[in-house]
Simulated scan of single mutants.
Amino acid sequence: MKRFFVLFLGVAMSIAMVSVGFAKARTIKLAHVVNEQDAFHVCALKFKEVVEQGSDGSLKVTVFPNAKLGDERTLLESLRMGVVDAAIITGGPIVNFMPRFGVFDLPFLFRDPDHAYAVLDGPIGQGLLDEMEGFGWKGLAYGERGFRNLTNSVRPVAVPDDVKGLKIRLMQNPIYVDTFKELGANAVPMAWTEALTALQQRTIDGQENPLNVIVSFKLYESQKHLSLTRHAYAPNVIMMSMATWKKLTPEEQNVVLEGARAGAKANRDLDNEKEEEWMAFLRGQGMEIVEPDLAAFRNAVAPVYEKYGDQFGEGTVQAILDTE
């Protein structure tokens, strides 16, 4: 009887330990709004891989692409409420809650990808990630949508005067609108779904977006002129609900940070590796690609800095410009 009792007790303890292990396992719901071919999804899959491997099974990640859990504004609200655990969000919607994040929308702020990465991965970028905690989010790392470029159906754009009179669709972003007004364009804020129809019908002349968007939405069918203006750089943020973050152990938090940083790097690497391929493809589709005089463009939009620069904290803009 005694031997049976000892055996029974051993089995019971084993079951209890397994049950505790299952109880500790946590599923992280990670959402984004684009398709599975997009760099955002590459970022999400790398996050999943690193987190699951690094946590030894205590964390599982389920990825929800294609806006299955809502658009980006909805996702930000869901993160605050703890309904969604993590998300990859572009900068525009964040500005609606956190205006200081709009500093990255200033035109020609970043010289090249390395400059953008130095700012975002340094004290300035980390400071903005830290501020997100006050909004119910844990900012983990910066990926990217990338540098935005100008396309149109009328003429090549090599200098600021070439923009004058062009009817250009923009996001509903006041800095973007003022930037193109300074260049002499007829700035038309418009939802993207409406813009696609307007481009096809030639009720507007052009638009601005990163190369991957120009390719994936087949804008070469209505736009024959591409200028590599790189007039704005759009980061994304891999972020987590603070409610979820606080439930993680310190070890799990470190793994999540590692996953976010690995995802951000995968996102950036894909964009950098694909740029030449995308441009070759667009040339093959008949687009004329121009590399304009960016110094002239920067001079033309100087009034935008005078209007908005002080809104982001004293010295912030200059510190970004001075970053090596």
Rank of each mutant, 00 (worst) to 15 (best):
Y233A: 04
S241T: 08
A266P: 00
K247H: 10
R261D: 03
N272H: 09
R230A: 07
A260W: 05
S241N: 08
E288F: 13
H231Y: 04
T229F: 03
G284Y: 08
A243D: 04
P292F: 06
D269W: 04
A232N: 09
K247Y: 08
E251W: 02
G284H: 06
L282Q: 10
T249R: 10
L270W: 05
A295L: 13
R268K: 12
N267G: 03
L257H: 11
N272Q: 14
A262W: 00
T244W: 02
A243E: 08
P235L: 06
M240L: 04
F281E: 03
K265C: 00
A266Q: 02
L282I: 09
L282F: 11
V237N: 00
W245C: 14
F281M: 09
H231L: 01
E276W: 07
R283C: 14
E273F: 01
I289V: 11
V290T: 14
P235T: 11
V255C: 03
L226S: 04
M242C: 04
E275N: 10
W278V: 05
N236K: 10
A262R: 01
V255Y: 03
K246W: 04
E258N: 11
Y233W: 07
E291H: 15
G263S: 02
A234F: 10
T249V: 09
D271Y: 14
R283M: 13
P250H: 11
A243T: 11
V255Q: 07
R283V: 14
W245E: 11
K265V: 05
T249Y: 09
A266H: 02
L270S: 02
M279L: 15
I289H: 14
D269R: 06
I289A: 12
N267W: 03
V255D: 02
E258D: 13
L228S: 04
A234Y: 07
P235G: 08
W245F: 12
I238M: 05
P250N: 09
R230D: 10
E258F: 00
E291D: 15
W278I: 07
A232G: 08
E275G: 07
T244C: 01
E273Q: 12
R261H: 04
Y233Q: 04
D293A: 15
M279K: 12
L294K: 15
A264L: 10
V256S: 03
E275P: 03
E276L: 05
A280E: 14
I289K: 11
F281C: 02
G284Q: 08
S241W: 06
V256D: 01
E275A: 14
R283P: 13
